[in-house]
Simulated scan of single mutants.
Amino acid sequence: KKKDVKNGEFKLKEQKTGKLKQTVIPTNCMKAIRLYIAKLEDEDFLFSSQKGINKPIGRIQAWRIIKDIETRFKLPSLGTHTLRKTFGYHFYKQFNDVVTLQKIFNHKEPKETLIYIGIQQDEINLLMKKFNS
């Protein structure tokens, strides 16, 4: 809901672990969010369902929206994990901080995080291109 994000952060309960997680919204994202929520009431959902009065969209509808974007822009297979991995990849490239990213993703080991975001494969590819036999 608008009230949940208007202060630049939000809390959510992770489905897999049941843990409550607080997340700060990056400043550049918050600028766009403020424009988007300007005309919403505090109790309005950010993504309202068209099925009922003041209900949020469900997981299936979110998936349909992502698939529509994939089709419209002729992108390779997209999903919610694509967005999560892309965030992780760019966060790592900007800050080179695998430990913080590991905490964000709730992974047990930094190695798991690097594999998840594809960094190890990128490094292997780069080294293979430079390798001379």
Rank of each mutant, 00 (worst) to 15 (best):
D68K: 15
I66K: 02
K13Q: 13
G58Y: 11
V5K: 03
L46P: 01
K51T: 04
L20Y: 10
Q121W: 05
T71F: 12
I37R: 03
Q94N: 09
T80H: 02
D42E: 13
F45P: 07
S49Q: 12
I53W: 12
I33L: 15
D42F: 06
I57G: 04
T86S: 15
K11V: 03
I53D: 13
I37A: 09
K111C: 00
R84G: 05
S49M: 08
L20I: 09
H81I: 01
I124Y: 09
I69N: 05
A62G: 02
E123T: 11
C29D: 13
S48E: 14
Y116M: 05
V98I: 14
T86A: 11
L101N: 01
L75M: 15
L12E: 02
G8V: 07
D122R: 05
H81D: 13
R72T: 11
L40A: 10
H90M: 02
I124G: 00
L83K: 06
R34H: 11
I60M: 14
E9Q: 11
K39T: 10
Y36H: 13
F45D: 07
K2N: 11
S49V: 08
I37M: 09
T17M: 02
V99Y: 10
G58A: 06
L75C: 14
E14H: 01
I65R: 12
N96I: 03
G79I: 03
I65Y: 15
T100N: 05
S49D: 10
M30E: 07
F95D: 07
P110M: 09
D4R: 04
A32K: 15
G52K: 11
I117A: 06
I53G: 01
I65M: 15
L20S: 08
K21R: 15
K19G: 05
E14A: 10
G52C: 07
L114Q: 03
Q121C: 00
E109K: 12
D68E: 14
L46S: 05
G118F: 04
K74D: 15
K67E: 14
M30A: 04
R34F: 03
F73D: 14
H107E: 08
I117L: 07
Q120R: 09
C29S: 05
D97S: 03
L75T: 07
Y92K: 01
F87P: 05
I104N: 05
Q50P: 02
F87Y: 13
K103T: 06
T71K: 15
I33D: 11
T23I: 13
F47W: 10
F91E: 03
R64V: 02
D122H: 08
E112L: 05
K85F: 03
I69C: 13
P26A: 00
I60H: 12
D68Y: 08
L114W: 04
S48F: 00
T27Q: 11
S77T: 11
F73W: 14
K51M: 06
W63F: 08
L78Q: 11
N54V: 09
D97T: 00
Y92L: 08
I37F: 02
K19Y: 09
V99C: 00
Y92I: 01
M30T: 03
K108E: 09
K111P: 00
A62N: 04
I53N: 12
Y36T: 10
E14D: 06
T71C: 08
Y92R: 01
T27D: 11
M30W: 01
D68I: 01
K31N: 06
